[in-house]
Design a protein around this nucleic acid. Sequence first.
RNA 1: GGGCGCAUAGCUCAGCGGGAGAGCGCUCGCUUCACACGCGAGAGGUCCCUGGUUCGAUCCCAGGUGCGCCCACCA
Length: 804
Amino acid sequence: MEALYDPSGVERRWQERWEAEGLYAAGAGRRRDETFVICVPPPNVTGDLHMGHALNGAIQDALVRWHRMQGYDTLWQPGYDHAGISTQNVVEKQLVAEGTSRREIGREAFVARTWDWLEKTGMTIMGQYRRLGASLDYSRERFTMDDDYVRAVMTFFVRLWEQGWIYRANRIVNWCPFHETAISDLEVEHVEMDDTLYRILYPFADGGGGLTIATVRPPTLLADVAVAVHPDDPRYAGAVGREVVVPVVERRVPVVADARVDPEFGTGAVKITPGHDPLDFEIGRDHGLETLTAIGPDGRMVFPGFEGLSQEEANERILAWLTERGQLERRDPYRHAVGTCERCHTRIEPLVSPQWWCRMEGLGAPAIEALRERRVRFHPESQHRFAIESLENAPDWCISRQLWWGHQIPVWTCRDGHQVSAWPPPESCSECGASELERDPDVLDTWFSSALWPFATLGWPDETDELARYYPGDVSVTAREIIRLWENRMIFSGLFLRGDIPFTDVIITSTILAADGRRMSKSLGTGVDPMEPIEAHGADATRYGLLKISSTQDVRYAIGAIEEGRKLANKLWNVSRLILQQTAGAEPAERPSALEERWILARLDAARAAVEDAWSRFDFAAATNVLYHLTFDDFCDWYAEAVKPRLYDGDEDARATGLAALARLLALLHPVMPHVTEEIWSYLPAREERLVVAPWPEPDAAYAEWEGALERVQEAARVFRRSGVRVELGGEEERRVFEAVVRPERRQAAGDADAERERLRKEIARAEGMLANERFVGNAPADVVEAERAKLERYRGELALLGE
RNA sequence: GGGCGCAUAGCUCAGCGGGAGAGCGCUCGCUUCACACGCGAGAGGUCCCUGGUUCGAUCCCAGGUGCGCCCACCA
């Protein structure tokens, strides 16, 4: 073994070997009947692994490996999401760069090209998960556009249709003019932008002044159908019921009263454009107003006389018209949040269009109940409440997209207008028997198919053995922003289709910010590719570092934590060298005949309990903390130093127990640092089995009483190191460990006894003060008071030894 | 505008009612036969501010200040 641990080669070698030996496969190492199942959140086919995936992967893998070692029948399901709009966006931009467009090449060619491109350059993330050491069952990789998966999606749609959850409605939706599709509220990204707020005079139709409205979008006034004011606004009490004239188009429209108008904003009077504003759409509907259109699907003007103009051009023309007539009263700089498409960042155009909707009221009820009853638990708790509230307030889900890449909606229309939804595709109209059917051209929202991930990957809608065995699963690990898009939808669709929840626990991971506290993003240039630390410090170190910083809601990326992981791996490597070099020919066996052996076995058991507790509470930072101190402080600084002389002397118990203790340590570290631990494990004698599937260490009740065995030696060492004075130790064993660890013969500088005396005096004064406080003694728990007394006694004893 | 969260050592963060902690960085001493990616010692903190509860508050409560994230149809 080399003195310096070199992770890269070792990690790659084990990754290949584990996968080749089938140890990542579902059920590998199974020693009990219970299952443990996690589905990886299917990444976009076009994407690369980012820091969020790496954290996510480190968490899931730690849980999966921990359960696998406990003998569970473990499945970690891999795969990809076709990511409708995101993938189409990528391919479409390629076409634009080539001087063509999707419309030019047509739908069929576009879809073919997308497949072609994906097969050549997409689907790379699973390779990066492999490099992270993620023990996904790669043999089971699924894609949400696989033939079987398509059947699942179609079946889901048809069942919703048959039970009346799906309807068609012409409503105002978020429209992306670049992709020319509707997108859901959840796909809109709000961005602060500098804009201009115009104040425009709408004269009364019968003369005598007018109303001044405020708007940021003059081009939409072409489609105005009313002006609205708040019913209680005294300024406009006389205006309601009168008519005003819309500028440019000279249309007479009514002034209506509506409580949704904010009298504080602008002038308190607002133009109503149901065709181009969501709130106006509602107000228009409630007041029986018509809906006019000024802007088309491509974001350009369609209003008669303005056809083909861009909105900027129309704006200039309208402003010129207003200025000429003195009706443009003011223009003020105005900063506000504007909706943009999260994929292409084009400004969203609210447009009225016919779309397919999934009714949420009622459909989400079983999911709400499951969350309320805590059959599904979100962690942390605050996200649990958020998940429930989101389901309770979920608006109807717009499931259709005017895209080409995705699952085409299984609805057919015959010449008589009858609509039928079925899968496999129907041959004729179920109502009139007509055989000429036209399929709806739209595709489904990507999240419609993702919602089925936990069971569609197991063969649903067929009742497969796997489905019976691995559904429901256990844990889902995702980011906060995906709770409503994905987690909640998996829960309600699982209950709807399978009558059961898909998992019991949802872990919402912390958001990893850049080192400067800003968001990690490509456009800001703040992103860090997780492959960088993996190549520089190793996958083990990176996994450790990510788990260590994963505790709070927002965490800054800190390379220091990963470097700490590298140090831990190196330390583990070196202490293993010490033990392995001194134990040639020995067999591992727990024969704790000396003080330090009893102590380290007790410490290992205590750490095992602490780590298990941390894993089960999903407190990954706590787990890494325990493992770090176990390795550095307990195992290396105390146990290894104490046992070293006995190893050199060839003590048989020390050698056998040393190997056994090392094996326990490796097992505890394995879920976090699988590679270095497996590598060391392979050098241990009588370890034919791979550590990946080795049994998780069993605790030994007999060890527990030895946990404090080194307490007095540790205190004596501390006093000696600081002051140069030897505290008297009770037994031969204690004195031997003290000499081995502290090695007084090598000590050069004399300690500062005065400083130590001063420290002890202060401690004694503090403890005496507390014990003299009757209220403390009376109210504090008995064990707290007792501990204080014990400390006082010890400090007094030590001070006496220092010559006082 | 709503929700959630964070303010502790120079940096990144743990602790969350009874002695202020870790890692990194810094200072000093060590080429000690596992490891200089190391070992030992050490400096460095009104635990954001103001009140309150308590025998006792970094920890609980209220208010303030400053940050961050998520969400959101004020034109």
